[in-house]
Design a protein around this nucleic acid. Structure first.
Lengths: 261, 261
DNA sequence: CCATCATAATTGTCGGACAATCCGACAATC
DNA sequence: GATTGTCGGATTGTCCGACAATTATGATGG
């Protein structure tokens, strides 16, 4: 009675298999980041496919960040995906999944104190100096709102790097990217926001300086809680979906309207 | 005297600009997930580029998970990146960045309790049943090591879904993926591991059932701590770099040796 | 040894081509 | 009426060949 189920047989097209092969080589460390890939023609010759097919495979790996072109050159180099690139992809995905400000905030609350704690334990003097300098730049205060937001982003990123944990550094990135638009609104609308942020950053930097994980985590916790209050006071509904929801940007190109003839 | 310096003015190649345009359309919700893309020929006509160029752009978006081909069909559909796909990319990136078991563990310790807490607050009865069922399957115990690890993965994933927070659900994924190989070793080498995991899962499920966030978080914390002990007792150095470090897999294809003729 | 320049190699883009196969419609069959 | 067989058009995957623009490479001269 139970009909035998067949799985739909799928042959991946050549460009996908090819991309898979090269990807496997990279992940297996047989192709190390920094080394240059053979030319397209050479790859086509070795794998016995057309250059067009090779190119489609390369585009695949390129957008995964596993290949990159260095400084206007022609050669493709094997590379590890940039934190910013991976984070960007994650941000897109989260935005499309309808992540709301409150969701991002909840994640921040879980992750950032842990990052601060780890950073307090493992930061190098150099990293401390970098973080401290970013905080000072922000505290100086004369930055336009836009730059101020960037500055806060740099603060968090520097903290992520100082945590000495690549997982934190990468997880950090999309959160920072996604919280920035909201932050811009806060800084724009709430006069006291800058002061409060500066104070929090100072406390965190102090804790880092003393190698005091608990204190760093605690201040960070308060800092994140403060964000929430900021959102509320700025009248930004926490249910807003993150990401740039462009309200019609008709200047780009074709597709006059949906379903145009 | 000071010759005016011109910046090098690098046009991005057409396939990148095209990919960017379409990507922007998707992120701006002008192309909604689920709708089909025009045919390659049509796109080529509208954007006034060659079909090959269109294809390279499509490959780019495809590997970002913004486009997908549905069930053996030919048409490309706009889609939101799968949690698994995004997580996979993240896992690759982390592996290439030299993330170690201890790094993943540290991240787990930060986020999983928060996920459990959120899940305890917001899980639906259905989600509870799903999680509970997975836990039961594991507790039944007769699974081979491989399947047992998969089962633990499903437990964490279900928890991430139940958290009602897409950010958690996605952040969860790479951690689960990366911890699984280590987990396999633990389950394989430590006889008591299965019992301890089953007990922890039961406690967590109970807390979820009672809508008790604190308890859920607390049990999860212990569960994660237990992982660490497991790693140590199983003799798996916490400094091991995560990811599959294939020890030479020379069966794949060309590239006889590094620097071949 | 280093700067300069001509030349070869490589990428980006184009045009066209063709087999495989997917899709929708229609006809035939039970 | 529902399933199955058939057919033509549309679309993708892959190939080939070509060419301009730019980059890498090697020769040349200081």
């Amino acid at each position: 009675m139970t009909e035998t189920r067949f799985e739909p047989l799928h042959h991946d097209p050549a460009y996908l298999r090819l991309a898979g092969l090269i990807r496997a080589r990279i992940l297996a460390r047989q192709l190390v980041p920094g080394s240059a890939l053979p030319t397209e023609t050479e790859l086509a010759r070795q794998f016995e496919v057309n250059r067009s097919t090779v190119r489609e495979a390369l585009r695949n790996l390129q957008s995964s960040g596993l290949l990159e072109r260095r400084g206007g050159g022609k050669k493709l180099f094997v590379s590890r995906p940039t934190v910013a690139a991976v984070g960007g992809g994650l941000s897109e995905a989260l935005s499309l999944h309808g992540a709301r400000v409150v969701d991002v905030w909840e994640a921040l609350r879980a992750v950032e104190p842990a990052i601060a704690s780890a950073a307090a334990r493992r930061r190098t003097p150099e990293q401390l100096r970098e973080i401290s300098q970013v905080a000072d730049t922000f505290a100086a205060g004369e930055l336009p709102a836009d730059a101020a937001v960037q500055c806060v982003g740099r603060f968090f990123r520097a903290l992520g790097a100082a945590s000495g944990n690549p997982v934190f550094a990468i997880a950090n990135e999309p959160l920072v990217q996604l919280v920035q638009p909201g932050l811009a609104i806060i800084i724009d609308r709430l006069p006291q926001a800058r002061r409060r942020i500066a104070a929090a950053q100072r406390s965190i930097v102090d804790a880092l300086g003393r190698h005091d994980p608990e204190s760093a985590a605690e201040w960070m916790r308060r800092h994140i809680e403060d964000f929430r209050r900021g959102f509320e006071q700025a009248g930004l509904p926490l249910e807003t979906v993150v990401g740039k929801q462009a309200g019609s940007d008709p200047a780009l190109s074709p597709w006059r309207g949906p379903g145009g003839a």
